[in-house]
Design a protein around this nucleic acid. Structure first.
Lengths: 237, 237
DNA sequence: GGGACGCGTTTGTGATCACATTACTGCGGC
DNA sequence: GCCGCAGTAATGTGATCACAAACGCGTCCC
């Protein structure tokens, strides 16, 4: 079969093993990944900023290897980019690319919302409660003019809703998009400031409460559209 | 700012450089990645098969490091999976997951097709020619009962069409989905055999030729639906 | 005869080092 | 004063080694 696929054929090499992942401890590369990922999602990393493997490794107190692993994973998700020469940087998506990403969100997220509504049909109460809490945090961030907090809370709201859909493959696609838009949206909200955003989340919560998947899907679509419009507006500045 | 992001702050470490990527030579990890990726896309790797870093490295005659890089990248794209203990295997998507993947394709691919039609409006001839060639290869594979060839040709057809849309972000999402469905679809077509597939590609080519994006989008949607139906049917066996 | 335990082996992870290339600094020339 | 050039510092890639955990198989006990 070649290619070392083996379907149960051992390798041949020599040395040995994993490095002590006792208990619930997560691997070092995972920890680095989660840290970088969170920063990107909430836009704490400036688009265009550059990272170095040694820098990341040192600041998280690991060796270069896990840092590399984490960075490459994010590059694969397009959350980070490599220059032709291999330098790592936080991508600055072109306007056209942002438009693509929002187009994809607009297609995928209403579907996820619809599935979430259907899946949580009998047992909406806990979900509603969790979403309400996150919407409160979101309102607070808006009131405080906290762009980073807003992006984080907004992401959490959507993530919580879609988690109810129990659709891991779709969720992975959407999360990859969020990672790509995160830094830019943080910047956008920073520019637009505390400007009043129309609240589609309330509509969404009502629809969910009323067991109305279609209205929920529409609300999410409008929410995404609003983000797209803001991004386009900011890009024009 | 911490986290070694630096927006132009050097790391602090020590050693030195890249390993000779002269000319058009591609890095070793990229070569490994492309090889594995092609195998997955055309379904040459059995779902459920296991790989080892040392095995992959040895069969492509590189060290463990690039093999690791490539495998992790594919894991990030969900084209490979890791067991909780870290073993690498070709994922065997559950039926529910396959359904999700096809749902996403159904949403994204018609949009890509529509964009491709719009973007190639003035200059369809070369695109049509390229697509026609690939459709011929596809028909040949069907006639020969070559499941792997069919999957490869079908992917190439769609990839060529969508490339005209010049939408890299959307394209990346769709390619990630293809990587996930590849091994399974190869198996599905292997099971269903040379059974007659309705040819939506001809319809698609006509629509493209007639400058009718909507009909093209519908044809692509039908094509995806047919694949989904087949996958569902095969899963029931 | 079947199931559970134990041991050797394989495996992924993390660390460190070497290297070729790329980016950056300061200096010189025009 | 500004552009271009050299030298140096820094970066990603690849290789190798060490380690601890998981797998797999054989054996023993019931």
């Amino acid at each position: 079969m070649a290619l070392g696929t083996t379907l149960t054929t051992p390798g041949q090499g020599g040395a040995i093993g994993t490095q002590g992942v006792a208990e619930g401890r997560q691997p070092a590369n995972e920890q680095v990944y989660q840290t970088l990922r969170a920063r990107l999602l909430e836009g704490a990393l400036e688009p265009g900023a550059s990272l170095t493997l040694r820098g990341v490794a040192a600041s998280l107190d690991v060796s270069m290897t896990p840092a590399r692993e984490a960075v490459r994973k994010l590059v694969a998700e397009r959350a980070l980019a490599l220059t032709p020469s291999g330098r790592i940087l936080v991508p600055l998506p072109a306007a056209a690319e942002l438009e693509e990403l929002f187009a994809a969100r607009r297609l995928l997220e209403p579907e996820l919302a619809r599935r979430a509504a259907l899946a949580s049909r009998d047992r909406v109460a806990p979900l509603l409660k969790a979403l309400q809490l996150q919407d409160d945090a979101l309102e607070a961030a808006i009131a405080a003019g906290d762009a980073q907090g807003y992006v984080r809370a907004n992401t959490a709201f959507h993530a919580t809703l879609y988690a109810a859909a129990a659709a891991p493959a779709l969720m992975a696609l959407v999360e990859s998009i969020w990672l790509q838009t995160g830094p830019t949206m943080r910047r956008v909200y920073g520019m637009i400031g505390t400007r009043a955003l129309q609240d589609f989340h309330e509509t969404a919560l009502s629809a969910l409460s009323d067991d109305d998947p279609t209205t929920l899907a529409h609300a999410i679509r409008d929410d995404v559209d609003q983000g797209a419009a803001l991004a386009a507006e900011a890009a024009a500045l």
